[in-house]
Amino acid sequence: MIKKVKGFFKGLFSIFKKKKHIKLGLYGPPNAGKTTLANKISMDWLGEEVGKVSKIPHETREIQVKERIEIKGKGGRSISFNLIDTPGIATRIDYEDFLKFKMNKSEAKKRAKEATKGVIEAIKWLDNMDCVVVVLDAILNPYSQVNLTIIGNLAAREIPVLVVGNKIDLKKAKVKNIESAFPQYKVVGLSAEKGINMEEFYEALFEVIG
């Protein structure tokens, strides 16, 4: 009898739990493709984009939120979340790096200043996340300290993590390197730009969010 009552309340709470909108953050270093992935997710389920993408690092310098995205999976499952696209986390920002992209000095300085604020904002928002997708560039060495710091912080905060190796459409992409760097996490290789492996990504999201 007690078991039945417990089961009833558990079921009731799980209904409320499922209805709750979770905050899903996209984190990673600059130019890994966070906004491209945010755009792909948002286009797939809402039909609208989240933000502008560019080859110049630190294109996203403010937190961008797309509210109430509901994705549907196999067997009628669905999850609803607010998607939070964050500026890339870096340990160095030099305005001179932006000059290589045909930017004038004042534009480059402005961008660098905004980028530093963006990094601070992204770190502050870590505490608000219910689940995080760490977006890494699959052609780069995954053992960068920024990657380790982000994942270490998420582990310390006990936030569920899904690691994405983006840009698998490129020949040099090596998702296996990411898998061996972070064996404790589910890793999905995809190309947000080309829309490759998105089904597997959504399934993995169901697994991680639960």
Binding site: R92, I93, D94, K113, T116, V119, I123, G152, N153
Partner: peptide, 21 residues
């Protein structure tokens, strides 16, 4: 580590471009 990155970003200037860690 994140506090170090935050403080680094707050201190970026003409002469200080950040850190490698």
């Amino acid at each position: 580590e994140t506090e170090l990155i935050q403080r680094t970003m707050e201190g970026i200037s003409k002469s200080f471009k950040g850190i490698e860690l």
